[in-house]
Design a binder for these strands. Structure first.
Lengths: 343, 343
DNA sequence: TTGTAAGCGTTATCAT
DNA sequence: ATGATAACGCTTACAA
């Protein structure tokens, strides 16, 4: 039917239907502005040719893409999966398409991906956390691209955020650990450089210790990447130190699971000999043995709320409102009182 | 510096540097076609204005985007994460950007996402599995978009694929189970509709049973979505049936982990009372207790190979070669001999 | 080596 | 209600 092996354009459709390109465009974008008879004819032509609008051309002409970009630190584990899926679902409902890419926890790559997404006409951007070079913010400002931060909440940051209080959450779980009777506590944290969530969590630990008369300076904090293997390694180190901590607070469930696995391997009973806690309440946390006491984060709600807020920002209905969602500690098996000889 | 609150264009740069737009374009795309002195002047202007090329315009003019799209069934768990990360890494090395979206296991959404990605000028597409309406293939054909299938390998499919033999892999693990002495085997499978991987795995089970003198008709196969909770539910059903199976083969590690968790809850010992196997060798599988005997899939290798093949297809260097990667059974704790009274 | 200008496929503003 | 036609920002012959 078509003259050659190439995608049909508006022009082809117009010719096929015997109308102008303007009419075809209207049929597609404002059907009520064209009389039924012509419309049917045009739509038939569209069907016959299998026409799909060229997006690049649309973006150029309309300066609007109904596309939202999201850049997450990693796709390699499920930390961001649930929240992002909810984000996409809500966006779909609102007529937007989500494009995702990963920065592999590298600021340079994130910057590159931001440029890629913006250049691609993304109407808005979802970013994770607030930590990034100032020039990125300048860039967003110059290009007038609305951006929203998730997974972190800072009231007076450069960008609005739909997140939660990482500092408070970790302080909360630390308090539970202290209430259990633990006095010798260590932490396995994610890499804090360029990661405000990880940094706030460590701060939360320190503050909770201080407020309870414990010395933050005497507390070991091992920093490592979010990886089961790394969690295991860090745990092994911690168990070799004297005095051995009776509770290990992990900055993330993945690390906690790594620690639990290593404990199992070393024949150290959890929580009888050492307690372990996580953060995120990933599915993983409730599946390992013992199940992980952790901080529950309302990922789905965060994703949905972020989608709503960001689309409103894009539509110009909102200047960007920040939301702080509640987290809670989920008590499971991996946290118990310290062994009696340690008292 | 800039006249207004809008992104600078080629024209702005050209004016700023006192050259034509063609020269600016050349500086960016073919630097050696312009003399050093001009180039420096231009690049300075680019810098000063914070210029980023408008991608839509580039795509329209050059009909090339250096973008690859991937549509995966879900981001909600880690099944595709590892392979996809490797895919992206390799693409980056080759100068391509990856855009991912999820179809939520729905053919309609997949189709919509394909159109979105193609309309956005994706140079090539990565799809999961071969099962989809013919019109999708027609669409890809008409738009001349190279596409590659992963996670599945079918020699004579419409699209080339870099995957593995789902049928053979499940047959392989079933044989191990039979060799262990099991005669009463059941399966918890993923949804097979529109999913050739899941379907091939079920077929693999049936064939292995038949080849070993067992009756596939007498074997219960429960079909459910890839979800820990669903795996748990299915396991509970299976345990309530008579005669109770002594081994449960799961179509996926997520299901296996759900089953293990439920066994734990029901006080059924794994593998002493019932053996459980998985598929994929996700990180998860080696972290639960007992660890899951499963089919190892070379996800990273698959991702890298797929990226190489697809970029070659895009470049026109390859017409699309299919590769079948090897899988292997990883023996862990969840598979053991059947309880003696069941013999 | 550099500039000119014709597209690329839409949308949107005017006319008609 | 429909049709011309000028953008949109870039690439790329072709000219100079």
């Amino acid at each position: 039917m078509s003259d050659s092996r190439t995608a049909p354009t508006l022009n082809d459709v117009a010719r096929e239907a015997g109308v102008s390109t303007a009419t075809v465009s209207r049929c597609l974008n404002a059907p009520d502005k064209v009389v039924e008879k012509t419309r049917i004819r045009v739509l038939k032509a569209v069907d016959r040719l299998g026409y799909t609008p060229n997006f690049a051309a649309q973006v150029m002409a309309a300066k609007r893409s109904f596309t939202i970009g999201a850049i997450i630190p990693t796709m390699d584990n499920a930390i961001f999966a649930r929240g992002l899926q909810a984000f996409q679902d809500e966006l779909r409902d609102r007529g937007y398409t989500l494009l995702v890419s990963s920065s592999v926890y590298s600021p340079e790559i994130e910057q590159e991906q931001i440029r890629a997404l913006v250049a691609r006409g993304a109407d808005g951007l979802l970013l994770i956390g607030h930590d990034r070079p100032k020039e990125v913010y300048d860039y967003l400002d110059q290009h007038q691209v609305p951006a929203l931060v998730a997974w972190s909440h800072l009231p007076d940051a450069l960008l609005p955020s739909v997140g939660f209080d990482n500092h408070g959450a970790l302080r909360g779980i630390t308090e539970k650990v202290i209430d259990m009777g633990h006095r010798n506590i260590a932490m396995i944290s994610g890499v804090t450089k360029g990661n405000d969530r990880a940094r706030d969590r460590v701060k939360g630990l320190r503050d909770a210790l201080r407020e309870n008369g414990l010395d933050p300076e005497q507390t070991t904090v091992i920093e490592t990447s979010y990886d089961i293997e790394q969690g295991a390694l860090a745990f092994r180190d911690l168990m070799a130190s004297t005095p051995r901590p009776t509770a290990i607070i992990c900055g993330n469930d993945v690390l906690a699971v790594g620690a639990i696995r290593e404990a199992h391997k070393l024949g150290i009973a959890v929580p009888d000999e050492v307690s372990i806690t996580g953060f995120d309440d990933m599915e993983l946390a409730n599946v390992v043995t013992p199940s992980v006491t952790t901080v529950h984060v309302p990922h789905r709600e965060m994703g949905r709320k972020a989608a709503r807020e960001l689309t409103e920002m894009v539509a110009g209905t909102s200047k960007g409102r920040s939301t702080c969602l509640d987290t809670s500690v989920v008590m499971r098996e991996s946290l118990g009182p310290p062994p009696s000889q340690a008292r």
